[in-house]
Design a protein around this nucleic acid. Structure first.
Lengths: 108, 108
DNA sequence: TTGACAAATAGCATATTTGCGATACAACTA
DNA sequence: TAGTTGTATCGCAAATATGCTATTTGTCAA
């Protein structure tokens, strides 16, 4: 059964880098068309391409992705040597709605 | 001129306590009807009532409120000895919309 | 089996966050 | 003026977060 951990989700977004990761993964075709091992739109983006994209080491990127996975915002598919990451749109949408409702935020 | 600092806003919400503060301030009449110096709904809630509500020290509460103020989510009105805090609904709504748009989150 | 490449994990150093008590400041009261 | 109450700030200690290098693990190809 799926367990949503709000604490993990809140913390996951409390980082400019992780926000940027989610942004580039919103349009993988735009930012990772040079990925040759698999279609970035279909499968997702592998870890070391994300690391080089943001100029951080592979272990550092690996940990940020782990936090986003724990929050449920990312899904990772292991395929051969690579781990392909893509957004979980429904989790992001659900969180956004939860935040609004949780704080009882009215429409603008 | 009003300057929105997204970093401050993101960080401000990355704390369960600060989330709770915003929640109780959504309905001050419910949680702070015992405030005698001023109407909690009209003016807001003073710092030491918030501190005792959550069982933290006054300086600790003061700092959390400062972070929420810097984020723009709280307004504080100094009146006599007291500092009355209340939510800035428009700032919360604006942030919520920005988050959604910034990550390009689709509707549920 | 060896070597390569991709990713995960361990271990460590630094930075930031968070809590508190002590204290300063501000507004009132006797 | 002296004392009280409410708030802000300072200084410190503990907990978390974040980055790196080194190492381990997994997968594949010679």
């Amino acid at each position: 059964m799926f367990m949503t951990n709000r604490e993990d989700q809140i913390k996951a977004l409390a980082s400019e880098l992780r926000m940027e990761i989610l942004r580039v993964l919103d349009d993988p075709g735009e930012h990772f068309s040079h990925q040759v091992s698999a279609d970035p739109v279909e499968l997702g983006v592998c870890v070391h391409l994300l690391a080089s994209k943001f100029g951080v080491s592979q272990p550092t990127m690996s940990r940020h992705l782990e936090l986003l996975k724990r929050a449920g915002f990312l899904v990772a598919k292991r395929q051969q040597k690579w781990t392909y990451c893509s957004r979980d749109e429904s989790a992001l949408a659900e969180y956004s709605e939860w935040l609004r409702g949780s704080l009882n935020i009215r429409a603008v």
